[in-house]
């Protein structure tokens, strides 16, 4: 399954090309470019309201850009509906709870695999694997609506990974996890890059977590990219310090 997909869909690059998104009254994104490669973790940081979630929405088809394009490899996917992007290996998690509340943890994960065309047997196998990997195995039969916040975040990630993605966009997946949980979670993100050979976009406010897992970091502020570079470069970047780091969790 995995191997067949990789030969059929060899898109190696996800790009936002000068994306602008104007809401009534607010311009959330102003000509933002972003490149996410396979086999990398790209951090996307910036204060609240910077436009990070809006960019994820535009990239995954949950919102349309006012101007600009989205490209997957050589293909312009700006007009593709979200489900089609999902099937092409481009998926996401949501900043706010979007679990299938009435379904059990296992069903949540399995149905995400079924959504992209996996067989029921394959879906079961992926669910076993992901519950193990994310430490959800004991919660298999629990309805997702009753999960504590931290577990619900992990389930979102498990569900995204169940689609066997080529690019996975994680919108604050670690928010609400405690320090002890963040380290194993960083391990999960690395394994998505290394073992699944996927590109990961990671939004988070915890700068040490970002530093620990990201290959590159892009900083947004008020809808504009103010810096791109290695975690070390970003840490030292003067505008980043004043726009973002200085303001704490913003």
């Amino acid at each position: 399954m995995t191997d067949r997909r990789r030969t059929e869909r060899p898109a190696d690059l996800l790009r936002a090309v000068s994306v602008t998104r104007a809401f009534e009254g607010v311009v959330a994104l102003r000509g933002v470019d972003l490149e996410l490669r396979r086999h990398e973790v790209l951090g996307l940081i910036g204060p609240n309201g910077a436009g990070k979630s809006t960019l994820v929405n535009v990239l995954t088809g949950f919102d349309a850009p006012t101007e600009g394009r989205v490209r997957l490899g050589d293909v312009d996917i700006t007009d593709w509906p979200a489900y089609r992007r999902g099937r092409s290996g481009l998926t996401r998690t949501f900043q706010h709870a979007h679990a299938f509340g009435g379904l059990s943890v296992r069903e949540n994960i399995e149905v995400s695999a079924l959504g992209v065309g996996a067989t029921p047997a394959e879906a079961r196998r992926r669910a076993d694997e992901l519950m193990e990997m994310l430490g959800l195995a004991d919660l298999e039969e629990v309805p997702a609506s009753t999960l504590p916040h931290g577990e619900e975040r992990k389930l979102g990630v498990a569900r995204a990974l169940a689609t066997d993605p080529v690019f996975v966009l994680l919108d604050e997946p670690a928010a609400g996890l405690n320090e002890a949980e963040v380290e194993p979670f960083a391990e999960v993100v690395r394994s998505v890059r290394d073992d699944h050979d996927a590109g990961v976009l990671l939004i988070d406010h915890n700068f040490s977590f970002i530093t620990a897992v990201c290959d590159r970091v892009q900083v947004l502020d008020e809808g504009v990219t103010i810096a791109i570079g290695s975690p070390e470069e970003i840490r030292r970047h003067p505008r980043v310090a004043s726009a973002y780091l200085g303001r704490g969790d913003g």
């Binding site: 949950f62 679990a99 379904l103 069903e107």
Partner: peptide, 23 residues
Amino acid sequence: RWGRRLRATREDPLAAQASGIEV
């Protein structure tokens, strides 16, 4: 698989689409 995908759309149509489900 069809019934299960539909149940996912019942629970959350947005999240279902992120998993490739065409509502």
